[in-house]
Write a protein that binds this DNA or RNA. Sequence first.
DNA 1: TTAGGGTTAG
Length: 586
Amino acid sequence: MAIQGLETNFNDYDVLLNECVNQRAVREGQRVHAHMIKSCYLPPVYLGTRLIVLYVKCACLGDARKMLDEMTLRNVVSWTAMISAYSQRGYASEALNLFVQMLRSGTEPNEFTFASVLTSCTGGSWLDLGRQIHSFVSKTSFESHIFVGSSLLDMYAKAGRIHEARQVFECLPERDVVSCTAIISGYAQLGLDEEALELFRQLLTEGMVPNHVTYTSLLTALSGLAALDLGKQVHSHVLRSKVHSYVVLQNSLIDVYSKCGNLAYSRRVFDSMTDRTVISWNAMLVGYSKHGMGKEVVELFNLMREENKVKPVSVTFLAVLSGCSHGGMEDKGLGIFHEMEKGKYGAEPEMVHYACVVDLLGRAGRIDEAFDFINKMPFAPTPAIWGSLLGACRVHSNFEIGEFVGRRLLEVEPENAGNYVILSNLYASAGRWEDMRTIRELMKEKVVIKEPGRSWIEIDQILHTFHASERTHPRREEVKTKLMELSVKFKEVGYVPDLSCVLFDVDEEQKEKILLNHSEKLALTFGLIATPEGLPIRVIKNLRICVDCHNFAKIFSKFYGREVSLRDKTRFHRIVGGICSCGDYW
DNA sequence: TTAGGGTTAG
C-alpha cells in the first residue's frame, strides 16, 4: 500500500504502519504520521502507540516522545515502550521520570514496565528508588515474574548488594539462563570470582544451559582468578558450541588469556576475529601493556590506526601510554600524549592520561620534569599522581622532591600505609632518623589496612590460595618448613630480607618472620613442591608485590632455574634467571 | 504493540 491512495481510516493506517514497523521504515512512517496530521485525523491509542513503537525501534527517540506527549489518551504499552527505550539507551532519569508520570496518570504498570524501569535503577544512586519500586512490585502479582525478578536481582547486584540479589534469585519460582547469568555476573562484577565459579558449577548441575552471555560472565571471573586451565576448558567448550563467534565473548577470551599471562593465545584469538570492536583492541593493548611490552603496544596501536575501522577511545590511550611507560618507550609515549593534546586523535587527554605521563617521566628518572608537569596540569593532582611521583623519588633517590610530595600525600591520603613507608625510608636513606621515627609514629595512628594480602596458584585446575596467617591449606606445614629452608639457602647466596617492608613496629626477628609469611612466598614455595622440576610457576597476588617478595622471587628463579610469572595488582612480573621484566620498577 | 543477563580501563 502506498501513501498516495491512503484513506483516512483506521484500517488503512494500521496496515501501513504495521509494514513500516516490520521493515523498520521510519521515513515512510513519518509520512503516514504527516498524512494523519494533514487530514486532521486524531489517531486512537492503538495507532499512536504503533507510531511510538516504530520510532523507538528506529532509534528516533525524539519523535517517539513527541508522539507520546501529543496523545490525549495513553495505555500501558505507550508508556512502557517509551520507558524501555530510555532504559535501554541509558537515559535513567528520563525513564524514571516517565514512570512516575505514568503512575500519576493512573495507568497501572505491568510486568513489561517493571522489568524495564528496574534496569534504570542500576548504578547505585538510584537504589533507594529501586527499593521503593521493589516494595511496589511485591504488592502485585509480578514479584515472581522471571523478567521482573532478573531485573531486580541485577539492580541489587550492580549496586553491590549481592546478598539481596541472591535472595531475589533464590525466591524466583523458576529460573532460566538469563536470571542464572545475571546472578553469576553479579558475583563476577564485584570481584567475588570464586563464588561466581562455584555458582556456575552448581547451576550447571541443576540443568542450566549456558549461552554466550553466561560464558562471558564466567570468563570475567576466571580472568580475576587467572585460572588458565579452566579458561582453556571454557574456550574449547565455546569452540565446539554455536556461540563462538560473538565478539563480546571473544573479547573476554583475549582478556582471560592475557590475565593468565598467556599473550600468545590472546593474540591468536584476536587474529582469528573477523569483526573487532574497540574493546577487542583495548583488551589486546592492555595485555601487552601489563606485560611491559612497549614495542608490541606501539605496533598494535599503529595497526589499529592503519586499519581505521574503529576509533581509539580513552581506555586505548590509557593502555598505549602505560604500555610505553612500562615498556621503556618514554619518548614514544610522550609523543603520543602531545599528539593527543593537539587533537590528532579526536580524544582529549583526561586525568588518567596525565597520570600515565607522570608515571612515564618518573620511571625514566626525569623527576624534575614530572614535578613541573604536575604543576602545569589543568587538573588538581590526585593522590594517585602524587603517589606515582613519590615512588619515582624513592627509586631514583630524589630526597628534596620526595620529601615535599610525601608530606603532601600524608595530608591528602593519611590512610595509605605505603606513603608512610616510602617517606620514612627516604628519611632513613638521608640519615634523618628523628624524622623517620616521627613518620613511623604517625603511621601507627592513622593507617587503615584495607584489604588483607592473598596469593594463589592454579595446579591441575585447582586454585590454591594462601594468606599471611595461613591456617587453611592442607599442606601448609610442609610449605612453611620448605620456606624456612629456602630462606636459609637464599641468604647464603645474597638474599637480605628488606625489613623496611614491614609496617608493624616490632623487633627485627619478628619483622623477618612477618616477611617470610607474605602470601606470595607461600604460594611460590607451594608451586616449587607441587609442580615438576623446570616448569614455570605462575602466582597471582591481589595487592602490589612488596620489594622483599620481589627480591625473593628473583633469587628463587635463579636458584631453581624456574621462570616465575607473578601477576600483582598493577602488572605482570616475568622473572627469568634473577631478572624481572619490570626492571625493578612497579 | 511494551520486558530481564555480557567484554577493556580505574
